[in-house]
């Protein structure tokens, strides 16, 4: 809901108000409906993200993008938080950096991410985040759960061992492709992305085979068949383009 200034202004001419605030002591300016993350990126300030992907609705789930606000102990996810006038955001305090590292380490323990034998080795956001955040080992014990690989689709493959549950596949399939083949079932550690009603991907009647899910997947969980170790790079240029051409639709709080 827009806040209206005291004096009557023409809201048709000013659909969104401008404000200034600070990120890491730099003055920045933003529309009131731009997230802190997008303003930071415009100003080349790097905030690590995983569940966020330009062109998809926000989920605020991975918590890697947390930032601090001066004067408050509460941490805010930059991807879903809107700035306020004169707010002072800190993206790189020791505190948030440490939390981010720990969150990433937890992600590594959750499933079986064996980078060395992964088709996405070298093209993986999880792997890159480890470098970016300086994670050279994981302090928490690995859980080594048992997960399946579904290779029933003729062109694609999903390896749940490498899934980070960012749900980009679910969102792109629903929001961009409009097929909603992907969804998620279970809860907590037993959550799992599924095709249709947990049927083998190859038998899915809703899957159009467009492969968008594969391209947006940050890791080697969703891949094209026939790729060997380190061969699976991803192409995502289509996303902002498709979004722009179709006009961004509301309901970004859905997932």
């Amino acid at each position: 809901m827009k806040q209206h200034p005291p004096k009557k202004v023409r809201s048709d001419l000013n659909p969104s108000r401008l404000l200034t605030f600070k990120i890491d002591d730099r003055d920045v300016t933003a529309h009131e409906d731009e997230t802190i993350l997008s303003v930071a990126r415009q100003n080349n300030i790097i905030i690590p993200t995983l569940c966020h992907l330009d062109g998809l609705s926000e989920r605020g789930a991975c918590r890697l993008c947390i930032v601090e606000v001066r004067g408050s102990t509460k941490l805010l996810p930059a991807c879903v938080t809107f700035p306020r006038q004169d707010m002072e955001i800190i993206t790189n305090s020791k505190r948030v950096i440490n939390y981010r590292k720990k969150i990433l380490e937890l992600l590594f323990t959750e499933r079986n991410h064996v980078c060395s034998v992964c088709v996405a080795n070298g093209h993986c956001e999880l792997q890159n985040l480890a470098v970016e955040l300086g994670v050279d080992h994981v302090r928490y014990p690995y859980l080594y759960p048992r997960h399946d690989v579904d290779a029933s689709h003729s062109r694609f493959c999903i390896d749940h061992n490498r899934c980070v549950l960012c749900l980009r596949c679910v969102r792109v399939c629903d929001e961009i492709e409009g097929a909603h083949t992907w969804d998620i079932m279970g809860r907590g550690m037993t959550s799992k992305v599924i095709t249709d009603l947990n049927q083998p991907w190859g038998t899915s009647e809703t899957c159009t085979g467009c492969g968008k899910c594969v391209q947006v997947c940050p890791t080697g969980a969703l891949t094209e068949k026939g790729k060997s170790v380190a061969e699976m790079s991803k192409r995502r240029q289509f996303l902002p383009y498709l979004q722009m051409m179709r006009g961004r639709q509301g309901g970004s709080w859905q997932k």
């Binding site: 079986n112 064996v114 060395s116 034998v117 080992h137 759960p145 048992r146």
Partner: peptide
């Protein structure tokens, strides 16, 4: 010094851990 992924993450030897 933990030298290489197997020492740090159990890596490929760790792939048997599920069984």
């Amino acid at each position: 010094v933990a030298f290489g992924d197997c020492a740090i993450t159990a890596n490929v030897p760790g792939m048997r851990n599920r069984y």
